[in-house]
């Protein structure tokens, strides 16, 4: 029979499912989809949603590692589903779970509210050193001044670094790598004058001091932002601020 000859290669995906209305706790469900050489994990999930189970929930948008929506645990490692090709994974079933360390809303969708609040808390905008009117012209910057913060501005808020961070897992109030990368993006900007304001938000255990320099956050970052660097250089800043605050006008309270 020709059926055997045309048999398509398939790949098995073991997906952690959670439907809050009916499931007490998450449990794995297994799906088999036709495999192609150029297939990403995201495409495999879309195939499942289109052809096998329309209730499967996951976030995605751009399909090209820019939007940061499709972060998930793929074979136990935080990765972007769009950026992970099935052919680069070891043979056998692919395990897919929602991002570690975040509450699961449904299937592969996690709560992002706390993360957004953290981002808002660090004044994520330029606070000009000296305000200028439009007539006074633009704020100029040399390439070297740009290089001092540029990599931190590449963050796409995909939260893989939070899923990689065991200290965030232990203490969900820890500000974490992603928000610190954004903080450093502004603190390292030559046009910015809001360093002290931001520094005041990152002291203590919920600030930078939960970090123990595990470094895995920077390893999993799909944009080479190096959030571990953002956190750890600010430990120095936080420590200096603690000891030198008495010398600052109005610093000691």
């Amino acid at each position: 029979m020709p059926e055997a000859a045309t048999a398509v290669k398939t790949v098995e995906l073991k997906i952690l499912r959670y439907r809050p209305a009916s499931d007490e706790r998450p449990a794995f469900g297994s799906f088999k989809v036709p495999y192609t050489e150029d297939m990403s994990v995201l495409e495999a999930l879309q195939t499942i949603k289109d052809t096998l189970d329309g209730t499967l929930s996951f976030r995605w948008s751009c399909r090209m590692a820019v939007c940061g929506s499709c972060g998930m645990m793929i074979n136990g490692k935080p990765q972007l589903a769009c950026n992970t090709l099935l052919r680069n994974l070891p043979p056998g079933p692919v395990t897919i779970e929602p991002l570690n360390n975040f509450p699961i809303e449904r299937d592969l969708v996690v709560s992002v509210g706390d993360f957004v609040k953290k981002i808002e808390s660090i004044y994520p905008y330029i606070i000009p050193k000296e305000p200028k009117t439009v007539a006074e012209g633009p704020y100029l910057q040399t390439p070297a001044q740009l290089a001092a913060y540029e990599s931190f501005s590449d963050c796409i808020n995909c939260m893989l670094c939070y899923a990689a961070c065991p200290q965030f897992g232990e203490n969900p109030n820890f500000i974490g790598p992603g928000a610190m990368a954004l903080l450093q993006r502004y603190n390292g900007d030559s046009r910015d004058g809001g360093q002290q304001k931001r520094l005041d938000t990152i002291h203590g255990e919920d600030g930078v001091w939960s970090c123990t320099a595990v470094g895995y956050c920077s390893e999993v970052c799909p944009k080479q932002v190096d959030p571990a660097n953002a956190v750890n250089q600010n430990k120095t800043n936080s420590a200096f601020d603690f000891f030198l605050r008495f010398l600052r006008p109005g610093g000691a309270r």
Partner: peptide, 11 residues
């Protein structure tokens, strides 16, 4: 990882 970005020759 523990120090500010070192910029040498603008890079």
């Amino acid at each position: 990882k523990t120090q500010p970005k070192l910029i040498v020759d603008g890079k």
